[in-house]
Design a protein around this nucleic acid. Structure first.
Length: 425
RNA sequence: GGAGAGGUGGCAGAGUGGUCGAAUGCGCCGGAUUCGAAAUCCGGUGUACGGUUUCACCGUACCGUGGGUUCGAAUCCCACCCUCUCCGCCA
């Protein structure tokens, strides 16, 4: 959510920036009309409330002195009906304004390249050399066919498309990757390990920006009257830990990591990445979330991205860092780096991590604040999230980059603590 | 799932339908006292929204949530949510 006061004060300018960067059309006319009415109705409502309060108090005082209150009662008589109508109208207007505000995307940072889609992303750096294989590399589906390691057919029978069953040493490798990442972030990068709920309430989803606009991307459950959603990433519960809280300065910055299941409906992805486990309804991710003071978020964004990069470097996986252009950024982000890992079978880099600085955007939706010692006043925090990294995709990357001609897979040095061998298959 | 108790400011904890945004204590901030500190004393100390003559004042809302009764609700009524205790079931 954008700052309400700033939006009001710079409505046309903001609308122009949203159009230029996001291709988002802000309904300026509707907002102006609602704002004008809101101001009139709110002022009138509060005047009426004030009148009612003062008169009611006078009645109480008069009664206490044993005076006749008939005249005072008559004065208040007409207020009730108008007040009720005004209050209802005000609530309706504020609901409409909120509904508009909740679907406006974040404004990109000035350093973000302007462009329509991923074609205008900018490569910032490259690390590592793609492995020189003297045979034609297989993709992870072919490699996974050995030993019943990766079984899409079984998963389809059980759960439908976009699920996989992992078995044996591949399941073990998958688990080792998650453990390795979690340990790295906890022991070396200073993150607090958190274990979070996977089902969350609608207001939680609204806090981080998945709702109300992207409901079709989510899996939902219904138990009686209560609706709960499966998290698409542990960013959601982790970030919402500060929802409706005022955090003291001494508690900042907060760095949290969680290993969790993630669930995505992938409603708009029919036909994309249907082969293998690149794009699944259910996958695992080690997430990084930082809650920081506003003036620290840029530096934290760089730091967080490095924490994700180190995962790939320790695993010896070649990658590049991309600065996303305005058209490719998520709804809540003001700046995003994607890490893309080399996949030999595709001869290209594929997304394995996304690190975003959301600025105050999520914090305003969540009412997540800190007490600024300089002013003594509560101010919105800044929130950041990043994958550190996607476990399923890391598994694919290890399989493909560490494959050998016979279809066996070498175990990266960093994962040896979880294995008694240096090769599987 | 059954039975009971309870949800009030950062915390603890009062609150007969009428100057209750809310006593008191603790905590915190400022000041006095002190060589300094402790103790003591004095003062201050919620959040959001709105208005304006915009760093100051004024107004409104908020006592779990949502409704209702009333001129007036923390207080009365209804529904829901949550927490705790005991029982049952269960990983």
């Amino acid at each position: 959510m954008l700052d309400a006061n700033a939006l009001r004060a710079h409505l046309h300018e903001t609308a122009e920036r949203l159009r230029a960067t996001r291709g988002f059309e802000l309904d300026v006319a509707a907002i102006e009309a609602l704002e004008a009415e809101r101001k009139a109705v709110q002022t009138r409502t509060q005047d009426l409330q004030n009148l009612r309060n003062t008169r009611s108090k006078a009645i109480g005082q008069a009664k206490a002195k044993g005076e006749d209150v008939a005249a005072l009662m008559a004065e208040v008589a007409g207020i009730g009906d108008e007040l009720k109508a005004r209050e209802a109208r005000l609530a309706a207007i504020q609901d409409q304004l909120a509904a508009i505000a909740l679907v406006v995307p974040n404004l990109p940072d000035a350093s973000v390249p302007i462009g329509p889609d991923e074609s205008t992303n900018v490569e910032v750096k490259r690390w590592g050399q793609p492995p020189a294989l003297d045979f034609t590399p297989r993709d992870h589906v072919d490699l996974g066919a050995r030993n019943g390691w990766l079984d899409g057919d079984a998963a389809a029978r059980i759960s439908g498309a976009r699920f996989t069953v992992l078995r044996g040493d591949l399941a073990r490798l998958h688990r080792a990757l998650a453990q390795f990442m979690l340990e790295l972030h906890v022991r070396e990068h200073g993150y607090l390990e958190v274990n979070v709920p996977l089902l969350v309430l609608p207001e939680t989803m609204q806090g981080t920006g998945q709702l109300p606009k992207f409901e079709e991307d989510l899996f939902a459950t219904q138990t009686g009257e209560t609706r709960r959603y499966l998290i698409p990433t542990s960013e959601v519960p982790l970030t919402n830990l500060v929802r409706e809280r005022i955090v003291e300065d001494a508690e900042l910055p907060q760095r949290m990591t969680a290993h969790s299941m993630c669930f995505r409906a992938e409603a708009g992805a029919y036909g994309r990445d249907v082969r293998g486990m690149i794009r699944q309804h259910q996958f695992e991710k080690v997430e990084l979330v930082s809650i920081v003071r506003p003036d620290e978020s840029d530096a934290e964004h760089e730091r967080m991205t490095r924490c994700a990069e180190i995962v790939l470097e320790r695993l010896g996986l070649p990658y590049r860092r991309m600065l996303l252009s305005t058209g490719d950024m998520g709804f809540a982000a003001q700046k995003t780096y994607d890490l893309e890992v080399w996949l030999p079978s595709q001869g290209t880099y594929r997304e394995i991590s996304s690190c975003s600085n959301c600025g105050a955007f999520q914090a305003r939706r969540m009412q997540a604040r800190w007490r600024n010692p300089a002013t003594g006043k509560p101010e919105p925090l800044h929130t950041l999230n990043g994958s550190g990294v996607a476990v399923g995709r890391a598994l694919i990357a290890v399989m493909e980059n560490y494959q050998r001609e016979d279809g066996s897979i070498a175990i990266p040095e960093a994962l040896r603590p979880w294995f008694d061998r240096d090769v599987i298959g």
